[in-house]
Amino acid sequence: MLKVDHVTKKYGKLVAVNDVSFAIGGGEIAVLLGPNGAGKSTVIKCITGLLRFDGEILIDGEKNKSLEAKRRLGYVPEMPAVYDMLTVGEHLDFMLRAYKMDDDGTAQQLLQRFELLDKKDKLGKELSKGMQQKLSICCALVHRPTVVIFDEPMVGLDPHAIKQLKDMFRELKAAGATVLISTHMLDSVEDYWDRAYIMKDGAFCAEKAADDTDGQSLEDLFFALTEGGADAAEGGDPS
């Protein structure tokens, strides 16, 4: 469960995120959409505790900066977060140790799914950007988080990895995890989203549930709301 309550983020006079509120339940996949500079990454960085903000964010009922909340959170950043001098296997070893978790075979499974097992002894700096992104995803999931935030996770991934990631989204959902995905690749999330939050100029301009789209695709909805003017937002529920 992820609850974002009246969150505002300012950089000096610039309001990057203005009074945003939403909640995503366990077993739900929410997508965060919006044009460049809309404030998606800022919201995500607030949720992950990387930025200071006004308002409140709860992760499974715990304040997002508490250790308990951090323990339950998984985060895939926009830029792959990889250590140059650690091998692929050591990245997961490090994450498990840092989170004080035992390896129950998840690390091996993740590496296998993302075709990194044969590169287990390769250094982070030797990986291509796509492979670094896959490793970043593995690092975010290896400690078995219950709330997972993905910021543009598909960038640089090959078709196999994209398919695996989509399957992973579904599995996380089936396991009752809360998933929030920020992406520009609308068609990649078309068939499994539960909620869509569309941002513009630092605020939500619409919130849609998957069963409340009147047959509109996510892409149509997005363009209608971001480029089509106020009347196009009919049916939206700006918060």
Binding site: T48, G49, L50, L67, E68, K70, R71, L73, Y75, P77, A81, Y83, M95, A98, Y99, C139
Partner: peptide, 11 residues
């Protein structure tokens, strides 16, 4: 400069 320094659940 990497997120793990902040994400790891330790004081």
């Amino acid at each position: 400069l990497l997120p793990y320094a902040y994400l790891v659940p330790e004081p």
